[in-house]
Structure formats: structure tokens, C-alpha cells
Amino acid sequence: MIQSVTTPEHKTEYLRRIAGKPYFEAVLGTHLNLFVEHPAAGWAFYLLPGSAVLELRGGSAALCGKLPDGEAGEDAREELAGFLRFLRADTLRAEHPLSLDGWRPAAPLTLWELPQGRALPLPPAPPAELVLDKAPSMLPVSRLVFAESDAEADEFYSTACTALAHGVGTCRALLYGGKPVCTVGCYEQSAAENYMAAGVTDPAWQGRGLARYLIVGLANELAADRTVRFACFPELCSFYGRLGFLQIGKIQHYTTDWNTR
């Protein structure tokens, strides 16, 4: 049975199930702590059969833990597929491989880390005309991160501002004429992990090493007190490998198109 997280006991159980899970504890845990009491923000959290939890926002879902084995597992997968269909979710990240009716596997995300206490060689500094801002205005940053979607930019802005206002994470940006042209941030944390995300460079400034400088610089700062982790798609793996980050696993990725069913 899929059970919405609505009580302190549910929240405690949800956090217990994601505890110690790279990526999931920081990301899902931050979202739960910030938004579980504010359903109007668009986030929803559920306990699933077995040891699994589910996070939903819009068309995106994340599943941590395992569904039961045997007949109970078949029933749980059928219920989950119907639930996701009803809510029109079309992307799913999962801790473990999963077979769901109507869903197809996509390229998994690679999970990277910089262990606590370690530091990577800092790439060359950016051009002198760029200014490093360690607390940039998040509105223009959001427009850089999601330049092609105002709706996604607004969602990112709301989530990031909420996290920062609650003391979770930080943001870095390189500014040209007061406008961000490259950014990376940390908007999810656990006691052991800083999760980095939203590394983006304006197309006009790509190829100049800006992302390398910001990503390594922020990772080194964050690794002083927690292990740093982030996920990427396969096409960026060689980039992060050259910077010196360590691969530690995969996050399964699934998609569906309910309009064709």
C-alpha cells in the first residue's frame, strides 16, 4: 500500500529508509525536511511496501529502497505503475534496477564524489573581466540554469531560495557585467553529504574553463566538512573524470510516455 507521509512517525520512517544512501539521503531528505509540511509547494512524499520511499514533483519521481520480493512485490510494482500513471509522472530515478509496466530504461546517471577532507587541483583562474560572486542573486541564476523554460526556472528559483534561506548549501557564479555566465551550487545536504547541482555555462562563454574552475573550487570548499557528491549523464563522465572526481555508482533512470499508451 502506498502511504502518504503525513505524520511525524511517517517522516521518521521515511528518513530511516534513506539514511546512509548516497544521493538519496541528501536530496530526498532535504526536500522532505523543507517541503513535507507545505504541500502547496508541489512536492509529495510516500512510504511504499518493503523498504522503499517515493518522492514526486510534477512529472519527476525518485524511488529509494526496495519493493518486496515474490507475489507481494508484483502487487507493489503494479500499484506503483498505476499510481505513477494516474499522476502522469514520466521520469523516474531509482536506487536499484526496476521493472515497471510501461516504463523503459534510459541511460543511468553516474554518481561521483570527492571524499571529505580531500581537495582537487584548482584549474586556471577565469578571465580577469569575470567576477566571482559567492552569494549571487538567484533570479538571474535560475534564468541561466533553465534558459529555455520559464516554468523550470521558476521551480528551481523557489526550491533553491527555500534551501538557502534555511541554511542549506550555497551558490557560486561568475559574473560578466553583473550578469551570471557560469554557475554551480549546492541545494541539498545531509549530515555526511553535500550534493552539488545546477552547473551551467552560458553558451557564449563555453570552452574557456569556467565550469572547471567553479566546480572544483566549490567542491574543495564543501569537502572540508562533508563528502561532496553529484550525478551526471554519460556524456559528461569524461569531463568529471579528468577533474579527478571518483565514480562510486549508478542511479537508475527510467522514462515513459503516457500519451502513446
Rank of each mutant, 00 (worst) to 15 (best):
P8Q: 09
E9L: 14
I18Q: 00
I18L: 10
A19N: 00
G20H: 00
P22L: 14
P22M: 13
Y23E: 11
F24D: 04
E25R: 02
E25D: 11
L28A: 08
G29C: 14
G29M: 14
H31D: 15
N33E: 14
N33D: 12
N33V: 13
F35I: 12
V36L: 11
E37A: 15
P39Y: 11
A40G: 10
W43N: 15
A44M: 08
A44G: 14
F45G: 11
Y46V: 06
L47H: 12
L48M: 14
G50S: 07
A52C: 10
V53P: 01
S60G: 11
S60K: 09
A61W: 00
L63Q: 06
C64N: 06
C64K: 04
P68C: 07
D69M: 04
D69S: 13
A76M: 08
A76C: 08
E79G: 07
R85V: 01
R88S: 14
D90F: 03
R93Y: 03
H96A: 15
P97R: 05
L98P: 06
L98W: 02
S99N: 13
D101R: 15
G102K: 09
P108W: 06
L109S: 05
T110I: 15
L111N: 02
L114T: 07
R118P: 01
P121H: 00
L122S: 03
P123F: 10
P123G: 07
A125K: 02
A128K: 03
E129V: 15
V131A: 04
D133K: 09
L139T: 08
P140Y: 14
P140C: 04
V141C: 11
S142V: 01
R143F: 14
V145W: 13
V145I: 13
E148D: 15
E148H: 12
S149K: 04
S149P: 05
A153H: 13
Y157D: 01
A160E: 03
L164M: 11
A165C: 03
A165V: 00
H166Q: 13
H166T: 02
G169T: 05
C171V: 14
A173S: 09
G178K: 06
V181I: 07
V181R: 00
C182N: 03
C186H: 03
Y187T: 01
Q189D: 13
A191M: 09
A192K: 00
A192H: 03
A192W: 01
E193R: 04
Y195R: 04
Y195K: 02
Y195M: 13
M196E: 04
M196D: 02
A197S: 10
A198I: 03
V200H: 08
T201G: 12
D202H: 11
D202C: 01
P203C: 05
A204N: 09
W205L: 06
L210S: 05
A211K: 01
Y213R: 01
Y213A: 11
L214N: 00
I215W: 13
I215G: 00
V216L: 09
V216P: 02
V216W: 07
G217I: 13
N220K: 07
D225P: 02
F230Y: 12
P234H: 12
E235M: 06
L236V: 10
C237F: 07
S238N: 07
G244H: 06
F245G: 02
F245R: 04
Q247V: 15
I248M: 10
I251N: 01
I251P: 01
H253T: 05
Y254C: 10
T255W: 00
D257S: 15
D257Q: 11
T260S: 14
